[in-house]
Design a protein around this nucleic acid. Structure first.
Lengths: 140, 140
DNA sequence: ATATTATATGCCTATAAGTGCATATATGCA
DNA sequence: TGCATATATGCACTTATAGGCATATAATAT
């Protein structure tokens, strides 16, 4: 006799997974693995595993688009909705804020709302963003 | 680098401890171990251990009164207050409701708001409550 | 087809966590 | 002082979990 609530809390009772969930509740964007990897600066296999755990706990949903996998919060469950609302306020702190900053940078590389690059080393990110701005200028 | 939030979630990521916390957020009463034992119908050593975990996580505070130990929610922390408010709405379900019913019965045995008996087997509880009512009638 | 890329997963190891039982501590009372 | 009672804790056992590494899968593009 396991409660749904304890299953959920087990899923988020881990710093890495809290950081992942924080990305979702703050950005409210479907995110793909590589974007999360870059935001958290963790190995891909770690992020992938933790996403699977969150998925199995019913907290997130995955939609595949080619090789890319877009993950987003599962708001179908009323308990989940309550949880996410709560977490948005509850997850405060330097770690979480820093992750969001990196995610926001990383999302600048999207094209028409879609992820178009894989992992981007943090030191290359600013350069890539500049290139993208150049491209946009040329198009105009 | 462990976040406060993950520590907290680890503490409540367990069915038994969620049930304990549910007693607190619902009753808003300081409770002693024997009352919790009777409400949850779990061995005393289990309840005691889980209370220690909740205490170490900073979620509850204990105040000793003789052999009795009154446990109550630690509302000193703003994050905790948010959490408890959330949990009060979030912890719904048969298990939690049943626990509350048994706790409410059990609390009828208090005298002037204090616990005065140890463990009471569920089948003796109704009898004891009746005895108490008799006593009160005699006093009047 | 083959190479590239995005993501998932199997195996290993170390550590943590929950349960049960017995027992310790500590306070109150006769 | 000695006994009953409320609560805490140490030990043994078992299971769960996270991290690291290598590799598998699967879709795209050349």
């Amino acid at each position: 006799m396991k409660t749904l609530q304890s299953t959920t809390f087990k899923a988020i009772a881990d710093d890495t997974r809290l950081r992942v969930v924080n990305l979702f509740v703050t950005s409210r964007e479907p995110l793909c693995v590589c974007e999360i990897v870059d935001a958290l600066r963790l190995p891909q296999y770690q992020v992938s595993k933790h996403l699977t755990i969150l998925k199995n706990a019913g907290l997130i949903i995955v939609e595949k688009d080619g090789t890319w996998g877009y993950h987003y919060l599962n708001e179908n469950n009323p308990l989940n909705k309550m949880l996410f609302t709560f977490l948005k306020k509850y997850l405060v702190g330097e770690v979480f804020d820093d992750d969001i900053k990196r995610l926001e940078m990383r999302l600048l590389l999207r094209e028409e709302g879609r992820c178009v690059v894989g992992f981007v080393d943090e030191k290359d990110l600013l350069i890539k963003i500049k290139e993208k701005k150049q491209e946009l200028l040329v198009k105009e």
